[in-house]
């Protein structure tokens, strides 16, 4: 049985349609990459899944239950954890406190030992008493991961975890994600721009363009999909085709 089933989700903001009937599903412990040009609806899709945005039409099932009308905090307790494209830490709380909040309210209960375990896993234990606002970008991303992990999640939604990081940090986060996956077996959806890193962790990719799924399959197939090339190259490609043989 699938862990997550997304069926025909629509969402528009004012006059702009961000999602036009997106459907896909994800198995337990599976890793899926979602890519696509800017404004293709990737982040909106994650927001619909985590519940911070409600879809206009369509449904989302998680673990066999329909969740698309549930509040974000209920979904968090069911095991959907997420991170944000621009990190949203509790800046005036300490690193440890940042983890204690989800542990207590979304996870198994506040437990100092468990919190330190999680911080140890993401490599922030030595900074546990530092204010989260003073962390570096790479550390902020690690802390967001730690917070999401505190929920004991069955599904992690990661919004551009690699963006803005230098190659060393990208490699470290990549290793961290692999370790998390092998230790907890959590399923992951990564919305990503950094394709090279993405392809090192998953073999299954969905391409979104203008709110629609235009490709689903292995990364290698993307290069051969006319629709994908068109979406990325846009009008220049059209012009090129017009002049073609």
């Amino acid at each position: 049985m699938s862990l997550l089933v997304v069926r025909d989700v629509f969402k528009s903001f004012g006059g702009n349609v961000a999602l036009k009937g997106v459907s896909f599903s994800l198995g337990e412990g599976e890793i899926l990459g979602i890519v696509g040009p800017n404004g293709s609806g990737k982040t909106t899709l994650l927001n619909v899944l985590s519940g911070t945005v409600r879809q206009d039409k369509g449904s989302v099932f998680f673990g066999g239950k329909r969740v698309d009308r549930l509040s974000p905090h209920v979904r968090a307790r069911m095991g959907i954890g997420r991170t944000f494209q621009i990190t949203r830490l509790f800046s005036n709380l300490t690193v440890l406190e940042n983890v204690l909040v989800p542990l207590h309210y979304g996870g198994p209960g506040s437990d100092g030992k468990r919190a330190e375990e999680i911080l140890g896993m993401v490599g922030l234990l030595h900074m546990k008493d530092v204010k989260a606002g003073s962390l570096s970008l790479a550390q902020r991303k690690r802390l967001e991961l730690a917070r999401a992990l505190s929920l004991n999640p069955r599904l992690l939604l990661l919004d551009e975890v690699f963006a803005g990081l230098n190659p060393v940090s990208v490699r470290e986060i990549l290793d961290l994600l692999r370790r998390i996956h092998s230790e907890t077996g959590v399923a992951m959806i990564l919305v990503e721009h950094v394709l090279k890193a993405l392809f090192q962790i998953t073999r299954r990719v969905i391409v979104l363009s203008e709110g629609r799924v235009i490709y689903e399959g292995e990364p290698e197939g993307m290069a051969n999909s006319e629709e994908v090339i068109k979406a990325y190259l846009g009008e220049r490609y059209e012009a090129f085709r017009g002049k073609g043989p």
């Binding site: 519940g51 905090h73 968090a76 944000f84 949203r88 830490l89 509790f90 909040v101 309210y105 979304g106």
Partner: peptide, 14 residues
Amino acid sequence: REDEVAAETLGVNT
């Protein structure tokens, strides 16, 4: 206070 959206997605019934 720090971030309401984040709090919600971490299980806090805001």
